[in-house]
Amino acid sequence: MTAVLDSAVESAYPRYLHCLDLADENGAIDVALSLLDAGVPAERVLLSLVAPAQAQVGEWWQRNEWSVAQEHAATHVSERVVAAVAIAARTRPTRERVVVACLDGEWHALPARLVAEVLRLDGWDVTFLGASVPSPHLVSYLHRHDPRAVLLACALPMRLPHAFRAIEACRRTDVPVLVGGRGFGADGRWAAKLGVAFASDARAASSVLATPAFDAATPPALLDDTEYAGLVAAKVELIDLALERLDLRRYSPAQVDATLADLGYIVDSLAAAVYVDDASLFGEFVGWLGEVLSSRGVPLHTVGLTFDVMADRLRDFPRAHRFLREVALRPAA
């Protein structure tokens, strides 16, 4: 039976991707609902159809095969599919209330949304607050509704310092915090560094929530963030130094904005790596950046030059300096 169901999902997958490509909301919902009709459990539709398709879309964007507008439209369609599947599954909550939210500035809501729906299917009374939830709103929601726990998603490691501030704000409400998402490292190692409970997926999250010991207050992590603070203060200066080496006259206004944004991401990622004191955070970002930029025809030696300029300025920043020196920029395979 499982094999039959798997093959049903497998055969629906190309049709589903086609619907995403056309931004065909109704078509995509039909594909998902017909799987439910065929007896495929809702959880499998979410995790074996919607999730991998979304990962595929991200990859296409990364390789510049899809525009950001296409990716955005597809994500919206996926969100609608998740909503439709959730409504069709009609689970009655039998367990306590949990709140799922993406941290401020986190727009990749779909993975968190999938976790929220799988938890709902598992009987939890889930409130999904959506993408980029401002901390004050999140905190007042927690004070108001006293949930069992709050699950916070962070997709981008460069957002970790911000994520940690939001986590601390949530902890001050006394509501237990559980985090997830690739922003905390594939194995959650940066969550461990920040002293916060981590779940790698929805299943793991559900079982952590069911553990009474999860309530035990965790001591606040003590991070030495002097170097991080210095980097944040030097951000604009670093970007300006890097810009001096580029011939901006040849750039269109949109290209200038994109370059500024990329330089901002480089500094943010470097700062986040310094924050958790882990060179691999910056290394992983640079690997990703190399693929994104080379697939868009940006010459990588200009990025290498940027690293040199920044390393030169950051001689008094031992971690940042070492991370910039150790990293190697490679084009996409």
Binding site: A23, A69, H72, D104, A261
Partner: peptide, 29 residues
């Protein structure tokens, strides 16, 4: 205008979300 160019295939909610997201990224907190 630049952020919306090429977005003609997006459903209306995705268009609104896109503007919100682009502004959110621009604000950077």
């Amino acid at each position: 205008v630049a952020a919306l160019e090429g977005c003609q295939r997006m459903p209306a909610p995705a268009v609104a979300e896109r503007v919100e997201q682009v502004i959110g990224d621009w604000l950077g907190g």
